[in-house]
Design a protein around this nucleic acid. Structure first.
Lengths: 205, 205
DNA sequence: TTCGCCCCTGCGGAAATCCACAATGGCGTC
DNA sequence: GACGCCATTGTGGATTTCCGCAGGGGCGAA
């Protein structure tokens, strides 16, 4: 279940938003401060963030930055009462999903939240595959990784054997074990799945 | 020589900006409308764009969209007189480099322009390498491309031969010609350079 | 028509990969 | 100490790749 995580120090806004979202079939949870949310935050949370810009000690953008630093990739929608262009520009540049002025149009906001939820779903499925790849990568032994690097550099087993001062046969064994553990059947496949790992694709609006 | 391309219907602004930039060692050229700029626009132009939001028939964002459609990748800085948050958010999401309100701070604006110039330079060098790859790719014949696809799919020459209903020897010939034309020596190398082609890397402020 | 480019094919050999079978030694855990 | 995991190596053979040599047919441009 993915839910909207609402952080705003204004109870009226929290109530209005959670009611609005519920009416669209979106469940939400609320916090009255960034600190409160940070205390509850857990890796792997799903859904989206709806953050007020101005809050107590920690502002929305600051909260967002801290969450990002902690690995959170949930799409964030910022709410602001006073149209601050530089802040909006800055937020979007830093990866915010959207930046909306209060008072907001109910329909529009709900649509944006739904879009954010969808973005999160896509991010999640993308992350699932890369996580799988990384998990397999973690299973490799040191030697296997050394061999893999050189295989990806397009070197012949013979050359790799020389570089590592081991017999060609040993290289072959490592090589095939790498393929096996990574679930691929050729060096080309390996190169391709590793290439997609280093390539996060950006989605917006 | 990279220069700032200034498009604004207000002569006073154009003059002020070009003077400001000149004082920082940045040369610029000015147009008084989007139409005028579009008429002069040529592929391969270098530098950055400084676009007014509100202009005659074609607005800054519209001009930007048209340029992007025509392949222009110059970083664009938008100037706006009235702080319009939704417009700013939209512009940044669509890839604008920056969105600045008038009246602007001279120092800040100059800094942003310099940053945009630098972004353009990075884009250019990145584009140069991908352009090289695409140029080589364009040299391949249809058959060679068909073979290449299947090689990248990790298929054996034998399988490829079956799929294309040609002799294995022919596949080998195409395969080696592909390597030759692409300037690589193994299928792994090929996979890697093609992977980097599909991966534009985003740079912002 | 001649020339160039592309697609196709066969032969044969050198080089590399892939793989099953078989084994040794180190190292840490239970 | 037995067991498991890792790194290492060898033999030998099947499979694949890589490549030079040699040649045929189609097709469009000069």
């Amino acid at each position: 279940m993915s839910i909207a995580h609402l952080v705003d120090d204004d109870e009226a806004i929290r109530d209005a938003l959670s009611w609005l979202l519920r009416s669209r079939g979106i469940s939400s949870e609320s916090w009255d401060s960034a600190e409160a949310f940070l205390a509850d935050y857990r890796d792997g949370m799903r859904g989206c963030l709806i953050l007020d810009i101005r809050m107590g000690a920690i502002s929305g953008p600051e909260l967002f930055a801290q969450l990002r630093a902690r690995g959170c990739r949930m799409p964030a929608i910022f709410l602001t009462g006073h149209g601050d262009v530089p802040q909006a520009v800055d937020a979007i540049k830093k990866g915010a999903f959207d930046f909306i002025e209060k008072p907001f149009n109910d329909n529009e906001l709900a649509d944006r939240v739904i879009a954010a939820m969808q973005a999160d779903a896509e991010l999640f499925s993308a992350a699932a595959t890369t996580a799988g790849i990384e998990a397999r990568l973690a299973l490799l032994t040191t030697r296997e990784r050394e061999v893999m690097e050189r295989v990806l550099a397009g070197k012949f087993n013979k050359v790799i054997a020389d570089e590592l001062n081991i017999a060609m046969r040993t290289v072959e064994v490592h090589r095939s074990r790498v393929f096996e553990k990574m679930g691929v059947r050729s060096a080309v496949d390996l190169a391709q799945i590793l290439a997609q790992l280093a390539k996060p694709d950006q989605t917006s609006s």
